[in-house]
Simulated scan of single mutants.
Amino acid sequence: MEADSEAKVRRRVNALRNLQVNSTHIEARFYKEVHELERMYSALYQPLFDKRRKVVSGEVEPTDEECEWQSDPEDEAALAEELKKKAAIEEKTEDANEENPKGVPEFWLTIFRSVDMLSDMLQDHDEPILKHLQDIKVTFSGPDQPMSFTLEFHFEANEYFTNSVLTKVYKMKSEPDSDDPFSFEGPEIIDCEGCEIDWHKGKDVTVKTIKKKQKHKGRGTARVITKQVPNDSFFNFFNPIKVSPDKELDEDSEYTLATDFEIGHFFRERIVPRAVLYFTGEALEDDESFEEEELEEGEEEDQDDEEEDDEEEGDSKPPDAPQPAECKQQ
């Protein structure tokens, strides 16, 4: 009789599991519609981002009315000083172009330098190239296409490569796994695809040339050969690790790919929509405050756990035995 009751309960639990599976499929539809909303609203944001690009590049000079901004005088002074450092604008210079800089010099390069996640990838030889970066855009896949988003890095004509736009496509999945539907937590990046950079001769910063001395075993003569080897560079970002369904990645490759996905998401969610705040450092302060709050909450939880452990240990200890009286010296 008891076994029969347990079987009935298990049967009902299985029905609840099926309801949960149906719920995950509805959730997947929700995220697909969110993606479509993002695509629709990106068209509304784009005119503002286009205006930002024109101001940054110096193509458009904003009006006095557009430049009005109420802020604390001390904050303004600090910002002015910071901008001098970031944009490398000297107050006294013989160059008239530097006295009246075009647009906002080194806007995107300054952001790269300021954001830890990006500065970790940045090398000295990347900086002259990124001075030519004019804009970063995010585009979303259409309603009849597999879910994805694309980062577009727009460059002015330069001496390093012929591309005017470098792209990175992030492919996403928003479907519950048939083998493990309960693991679904929303869209996830599953793969990414870069682009080929058409480097001018001798300007490819993703490789370096090394010289190696070879000695002939029989003759004893030596010769020097040159070979190209990979070089650390931000521009390796456009040549990501290839994901193969038939081959498992090693631990280092998995970490590299996960970091790549995180960077792509950060560009999409933070850098592109809030670029000026990362340039001024205001967004960095917000990010740091958020991290500090998370850390404090984590520390409090750890402290609470320790106190609970101490209480449990205290409850399990027997009462302290009376201490023997001290021996008096004769």
Rank of each mutant, 00 (worst) to 15 (best):
G194K: 04
P230K: 04
K102L: 14
S183D: 12
E81I: 01
R39L: 01
V272K: 02
Y31G: 03
S114D: 10
K84F: 09
E193N: 14
K131I: 01
Y31A: 06
D287I: 00
E81M: 10
M40R: 14
P176Q: 09
K217M: 12
S289A: 08
D309T: 07
D144W: 05
D198G: 14
I129E: 08
S42P: 04
I129V: 15
N231W: 00
D232I: 00
D309W: 10
E285A: 12
F235C: 05
V207S: 13
A80M: 12
D64V: 02
I89M: 12
L83K: 15
A77W: 03
D179E: 12
D252L: 02
G264D: 05
P322L: 02
D305M: 07
T259C: 08
S174I: 01
E293Q: 10
H265D: 10
N158V: 04
E61I: 00
D320C: 05
V9T: 13
Q329M: 09
M147F: 00
D232S: 12
P105V: 00
N22E: 15
D286C: 04
Q214N: 13
W199R: 15
F184V: 01
E90S: 15
E82S: 09
T209M: 13
D126K: 03
N158I: 03
P273Y: 06
E254D: 11
R10V: 02
E193D: 15
E68R: 08
Q46L: 10
V104T: 12
V13W: 11
D126L: 00
D177Y: 00
R274S: 15
C67M: 11
K92V: 14
E301R: 13
S119P: 08
L133A: 06
S23M: 13
S178T: 10
A78F: 11
L295H: 05
E127W: 03
V224F: 04
K215D: 03
G314V: 00
F266E: 10
P319I: 07
P324I: 00
D246G: 07
D116F: 07
H25I: 06
D252T: 05
K242H: 13
P245A: 03
M40T: 09
E156G: 14
K32M: 08
R52H: 10
P273E: 06
F112E: 01
T93K: 08
F290V: 08
P143R: 14
D304F: 00
P181I: 01
Q214K: 15
E156Q: 15
Y41C: 08
L109M: 06
T93E: 06
H200G: 07
E94I: 02
P146A: 07
E306K: 12
K84T: 09
E27C: 11
F112C: 01
I271W: 03
D305R: 04
V205T: 15
K203M: 15
T226H: 12
A258K: 12
E61T: 05
F267K: 05
Q330W: 02
Q145S: 06
E307F: 11
E306R: 08
K213P: 04
P245V: 01
E188R: 12
E59I: 07
K84P: 05
N100E: 13
K247Y: 01
A87T: 13
K242A: 08
A87I: 01
L284M: 14
P176K: 09
D144P: 02
G202I: 11
G194C: 04
D4E: 10
I241G: 07
E248T: 11
E175F: 04
